[in-house]
Design a protein around this nucleic acid. Structure first.
Lengths: 219, 219
DNA sequence: ACCTGAACACCGTTCAAGT
DNA sequence: ACCTGAACACCGTTCAAGT
């Protein structure tokens, strides 16, 4: 406690520059801050200070704060896709795997609520861009759209697989995938918002009820 | 154009005080700003200036900006509940009315995207309060919770009615209502996020597909 | 009671300047 | 190329003071 007397950056040493993958370091610091204290606590000055770097160094790697948030969102979709794929595989690529994906999805959102909110928040949405008249997206936003589509594709592929094994009706797979995604996303949001009551088991109960009803709906 | 030379507040006249229902005026100004320019454009200084009032006058009626946003959200749930009730009634309180509620819900979100986001955003959620350790909510947040529950109740009541007419399975109505809400909310969010493609008809198509699958799932 | 103006402690972003 | 410090134009919020 008494060791450090100044309010100087913690990591900073004699060498003045960061030198290394500052972009990645900034992104990880942002993800950590959001996970621990929420999006509202994320300031460019704060992430810079955490890394022992000036508060404007960030602009060398991201065009602005929105671009940083878009990168955070893209990282979230990458993580989500990985967990969905794993659940689908380990569940045996059938109805059981499909249900496991639903559980994994809700668990991801419940474990990283602030990060999940950024993934679907206004800062990052197409609505936001439409409102401010920007019809050309930055590189981060293009990456975000791609990662979001990737996560969606895992779900769509699973539905096609179910169709091939005659475990799902033969509607348009994309339409079916959007329906399933909407339901799961809705449960996740209600859980994050604290609208499912205070007991933690309420989330599990609804999640399992949901997977049962969804499998019935697409059968 | 050349008439007003100063940057002074537009409505302000000789009488210095607002005198009237300033609280209501502030709330409506906030709703309008959010609807026209998004939440990011909402500043306390801005709403005050719009009403020809000092930027701190607001604190006589709301404890802080979060309380104003909570009131905006509560107002949104009030509007949503009214539209849901009307659709249910006019649709004949049966399966057709139930489908009409789904369509009305998604249309509400698509018509007021920023307002809808505030209703389900982090500023207003229980997660947010838990994160900052506030276990006692303000009056606005209590009102918000009540209005949210009211909108949910319309849906739950409709499901009970369907059950009584043997048009829905006899699971726990609250569980069923949460499932249906989650699905509809999910479609609404995907629509707002612009994740349903660029054509406007894609929203209608998915909404109708959704209502069909949901009715099958709860039958 | 209700409203004001000045002040405080923050923000994101820009830009000329350093290495 | 990459980073810095100072400066700019904003915020929400507090508070003593006015009517």
């Amino acid at each position: 406690m008494a060791r450090r007397l100044s309010a100087a950056p913690a990591r900073k040493r004699a060498d003045r520059y960061h030198h290394g993958d500052l972009r990645r370091a900034l992104l990880q610091a942002a993800v950590r801050t959001i996970g621990q204290h929420g999006v509202a606590a994320l300031t460019l000055r704060g992430v810079g200070s955490t890394l022992g770097v000036s508060r404007t160094a960030l602009y060398r790697h991201f065009t602005d704060k929105a671009a940083l948030l878009a990168a955070v969102a893209a990282e979230g979709f990458r993580m989500l896709r990985a967990e969905l794929s794993e659940s689908w595989e380990r569940g045996g690529r059938g109805r059981r795997g499909f249900a496991a994906m639903g559980v994994a999805y809700v668990r991801f959102a419940a474990s990283h609520p602030s990060h999940y909110r950024v993934m679907f928040g206004a800062d990052v949405s197409a609505e936001h861009h439409a409102m401010f008249g920007a019809d050309i997206f930055g590189a981060e936003h293009a990456d975000l759209a791609q990662e979001g589509a990737g996560a969606f594709q895992v779900l769509a592929d699973a539905i096609v697989a179910l169709q091939e094994h005659r475990q799902a009706r033969r509607d348009d797979p994309r339409q079916m995938a959007m329906f399933v995604w909407a339901t799961t996303h809705g449960v996740a949001m209600l859980a994050i918002d604290g609208r499912l009551g205070q007991e933690a088991s309420a989330i599990d109960t609804l999640t399992h009820y949901m997977t049962g009803r969804v499998l019935a709906a697409i059968a």
